[in-house]
Amino acid sequence: MNNVLAHTQPIPRRTLLQHGSLWLAASAPIAKAAFAVEKRSSEAVRIGLVTDLHHADKAPGGSRHYRDTTKKLAEAAKQFRSSSLDCLVELGDLIDAAKTVDTELGYLETINGQFREICKDRHYVLGNHCVDTLKKSEFLEGVGQERSYYSFDRKGIHFIVLDACFREDGVGYERKNFHWTDANIPPAELDWLRKDLKSNEHPVVVLAHQRLDVSDHHGVKNNAVVRDVLEQSGNVKAVFQGHSHQNALKQINGIHYCTLAAMVEGKGIANNGYSVMDVYPDGSIHLEGFMRQSSYDWNS
């Protein structure tokens, strides 16, 4: 039976919930991020995290304010630069859909032009909107990244970037050939994931777009299979994901599944959301959330 702890709504910042090895401190929304990230040990790896910017030059759609993401990213960049990041991660849907390839590439150049100035060491997770009009190869070339799924090490921590932008038949998303609810990790990527985890002895943090902890329309269809692979390794500490646009947290069989708030949601800088994460050699994690993003502490 899965041991699950779920948290979907922000709670007062001083509230602490202890559940086994989990300590959680979730911050209520605040007008602006006037506080600084705590000083970290030189042994910790520090990661800046953003998700679901959906940048596009178009009018708001419901709660999504596409043009505001350039201002929100500029605000987040100030905190990221003062935090001395080791690397910067974007968890998918950097851009929103466009009618033409040229328009989509224009969106990508605009927002990535800002993003690449923040930190030299950058990593991009593919989101469904990233390849709504573009091919994966076009998006990856646009951001200067070779692969859509891969792993990398920083200061003794192993990071895995996953790509769930595949249909159930194994065909990759591109040029409007998919429905966004049909997200899957294909057999070849699962085989790679097993081998990658087997060859690693360090604490592991997984970076994804579509959620691995739910079976609704925001979840990867074969999420249970993927979770089983992660659990068998014994080294995976946490999965960070986006896609559903709101703070959410589950603990399933010892792994924390943390869904981050979307930057695109809400008008203006006051509705921004981003975070700075410290991962320590023993696998402990401190996530400092800003604006609409909750904060968490997890002991190894």
Rank of each mutant, 00 (worst) to 15 (best):
F159Q: 09
H209Y: 01
L212Q: 00
D182K: 14
F159A: 06
G106W: 03
L140V: 11
L230G: 09
P203A: 03
E138K: 00
T181E: 13
A164C: 14
E117W: 01
S199T: 12
E231M: 08
Y173V: 09
S137L: 08
L134D: 00
L193Q: 04
G113N: 09
H245R: 01
C130D: 14
V229M: 06
P186Q: 13
F178T: 04
R154Q: 14
D153T: 15
Y150N: 06
K120T: 07
K221H: 07
E174F: 10
I252Y: 06
E104Y: 08
A238Y: 06
H209C: 02
R194Y: 12
F152W: 15
T110R: 09
E231F: 11
D153K: 08
Y149G: 08
P203W: 05
R194H: 14
N128Y: 09
R175F: 03
N247S: 15
L197V: 11
H245P: 06
A208I: 00
R211K: 07
D169Q: 03
V161E: 02
N223S: 14
H245D: 07
A188N: 08
N128K: 01
I111H: 06
N223E: 03
G170P: 03
Q145P: 04
R211H: 07
D169H: 04
W180A: 10
A188M: 10
W192P: 07
K198W: 09
D228I: 00
V171Y: 02
D216L: 13
H245M: 05
R122D: 00
G106E: 07
L190C: 11
D132M: 00
A248G: 14
H158E: 11
D169G: 12
R167S: 11
L134S: 05
H179V: 12
N128A: 05
V220H: 05
A183C: 14
Y173C: 06
R116C: 13
V226C: 13
Q241K: 05
V236S: 03
Q251E: 12
D196T: 14
R122W: 01
D153H: 12
N184H: 13
H179E: 09
Y124T: 03
N223Y: 13
N247A: 15
N223A: 15
V131Y: 04
S233N: 10
R154L: 15
T133W: 02
D121K: 09
Q114C: 07
S151A: 15
